[in-house]
Design a protein around this nucleic acid. Sequence first.
DNA 1: CAGTATCCAGACGGATACTG
DNA 2: CAGTATCCGTCTGGATACTG
Lengths: 134, 134
Amino acid sequence: MTNDTASASPVAVAPEQACPITPVVDIVFSRWTTSILWTLHEYGRHRFVELERRITTITPKVLTERLRQLERDGLVVRTYHPEVPPRVEYEISDLGRSLGPLFAALAGWSVNLGKVEQARLEYDAKEPARGRRK
Amino acid sequence: MTNDTASASPVAVAPEQACPITPVVDIVFSRWTTSILWTLHEYGRHRFVELERRITTITPKVLTERLRQLERDGLVVRTYHPEVPPRVEYEISDLGRSLGPLFAALAGWSVNLGKVEQARLEYDAKEPARGRRK
DNA sequence: CAGTATCCAGACGGATACTG
DNA sequence: CAGTATCCGTCTGGATACTG
């Protein structure tokens, strides 16, 4: 943090983000990708159905979409085995593995989830505050 | 990572996530919240218009929605000053500040964005692979 | 098994206009 | 200034069915 109020600086910054971490978030934390990457990172290689079963609520269509995206971004490696029942395996790439510390930090922060829950309860309990009364 | 293939473990896990970090992601990295939190964390207190100007492409409606959500989750503190032109200030809470290391990790990982871009180029260049030909 | 192909609903967010 | 109110288009992602 630098100063208060921060109105002086005229930095207009490029459209879409004044914020350097948004690009990373878009790649790593879009819907479902977190679960997929984390699963692959934590439990190693998986076949398509195995992922489907582990992520329970995901549909094959969406799983395919996300896996393609992850593969394209170089975070996941897809291996096709031309066998009689076809076999495909997905595993995390080195680049994907480099997200490890990030995942650890995320998991670490989850100790605060209780505080979030608490904050929500308090917020919902107190009547509409000044300057916002309906 | 534990073992290969990982098909044996019958862990069915609760619907929605086999993955413990998803809840955190949902709270912290939903659309726009990253930019808002990061801005508040990095540059301190902001008034509504200041945020609006810094995040350039966000509309007042959406900014309000996200700020409410963040306030409810206890990540941001809203202060209303009952003055003649009303003045409202938003700042990050202690809980929000505890995301600092996470943000740092994210920012650090952005050195890899080039690799992602590279991977995309390669993926797009090579013709449809085996087992996936159109 | 490992996907594709369709169809579709509903949430999300943008544009615009108005108010205490 | 700091929002709120409306309207509405888009696009994601779910359900379902089919294929190499």
